[in-house]
Nucleic acid binder design. Structure first.
Length: 259
DNA sequence: ATGCCTTCTTGAAGAAGA
C-alpha cells in the first residue's frame, strides 16, 4: 500500500497538478492539507473519476484537510476531538479515516505566526489535544499514522540554516517538546529519503530561489505506531512535484507499506 | 533549467503562509 501526505496550498489552484500526481504516483491513500476551500467546494467528482473517495474538512478561505482513498474510507472523524478554538471557532485542521486496514489522521498543525503570538499558544494547545487523541488510537495491532504539515522542524538538521530561524516559530523548544511528547505516546518519525541532496526537506519558500538553492525545511511528517513503522518498505519526498509553474510550496511525502 | 512568491477575497490592498 502506498500512502502519501501533501500540503497542496489550495486544492483549487492545485487541481491540475494534484490530478496529474495522483495518476502518475498512484497512492492508495493521500492526506491533503491547506485545501483553502469549503467541503462543498472540494473537487470530489474529479478525484472520484480517478477512483478516490473523499473525506473533507474544509472551512473556506484558510486551512482545510482531506483524506482521499481508493481502498475504503471507514470510521471517519472530522475535526480534532476537544481541540482548542482560535478566535472563537474551531478551524479545519484534522480528519481521520480507516483505509484498507490502516488508520490515518490528516493534520494541518497551526502555524503559530510568531513566538508569543496568541496563535503560537494555540499551536501548542492544539498539539496537546492531538497527543491526547493519539493516545486513544495508537495501541493495538492496527497500523496507525498521523500524517501532515506539522509546521515544526523536529531538529536543527531539518532546516537549511539554523541561524536563519533564530527566534522564529517552527524550531522552538516548546514546539519540539510537543512533538517529543507525541512520539512518547508510541509513535515514531518515518524518515523519508531525499531524492536529491542530503536531507529530505519537504517545504521550500516560493521566494528568493529557495527551491533551486535547496533552502528547505522538513516540516511535513509521518508519525506512525509500531505496526505502521514495521510495515514501512520505503519512504521518500517527491521533490519533482515542487518543480515548475503552478507547484505547491510543499512536496508530497510518500510511504510504501508492506500491507 | 529547479529560476527570484503565491493564494484568497475582493474589486485595491491586505492577510497569511513558515
Amino acid at each position: 500500500m502506498r500512502i502519501a501526505t501533501w500540503n497542496v496550498n489550495s486544492v483549487g489552484a492545485r487541481l491540475p497538478r494534484l490530478l496529474e500526481w495522483l495518476e502518475s504516483s498512484g497512492p492508495d491513500v493521500i492526506c491533503l492539507q491547506e485545501l483553502k476551500c469549503s467541503a462543498e467546494a472540494f473537487p470530489s467528482a474529479e478525484v472520484k473519476a480517478l477512483g478516490y473517495e473523499s473525506l473533507v474538512n474544509g472551512d473556506g478561505r484558510w486551512n482545510g484537510v482531506a483524506v482521499l482513498s481508493r481502498v475504503g474510507l471507514a470510521d471517519t472523524v472530522i475535526g480534532l476531538p476537544e481541540g482548542p478554538a482560535y478566535d472563537g471557532g474551531q478551524e479545519s485542521r484534522a480528519a481521520a479515516a480507516t483505509c484498507g486496514g490502516v488508520r490515518v489522521w490528516s493534520v494541518y498543525v497551526p502555524n503559530g505566526r510568531e513566538v508569543g503570538h496568541p496563535h503560537y499558544d494555540y499551536k501548542l494547545q492544539w498539539l496537546e489535544a492531538l497527543r491526547r487523541t493519539a493516545r486513544h488510537e495508537v495501541s493495538g495491532d492496527l497500523p496507525f499514522a498521523i500524517l501532515g504539515d506539522y509546521n515544526i522542524a523536529p531538529t536543527d538538521e531539518d532546516v537549511y540554516d539554523r541561524s536563519v530561524f533564530e527566534g522564529s516559530t517552527h524550531v522552538t523548544e516548546p514546539e519540539r517538546a510537543a512533538l517529543k511528547a507525541l512520539r512518547q505516546e508510541g509513535l515514531s518519525d518515518v524518515m523519508p529519503r531525499a531524492l536529491k541532496y542530503d536531507h529530505p526537506y519537504t517545504y521550500w519558500d516560493y521566494r528568493q530561489l529557495c527551491f533551486p538553492k535547496n533552502r528547505g525545511m522538513r516540516i511535513d511528517l509521518v508519525y506512525g505506531n509500531a505496526p505502521f513503522a514495521a510495515a514501512v518498505k520505503d519512504s521518500y519526498v517527491d521533490r519533482e512535484a515542487r518543480k515548475g509553474k503552478g507547484a505547491s510550496d510543499h512536496a508530497p511525502v510518500v510511504v510504501d507499506l508492506d500491507i
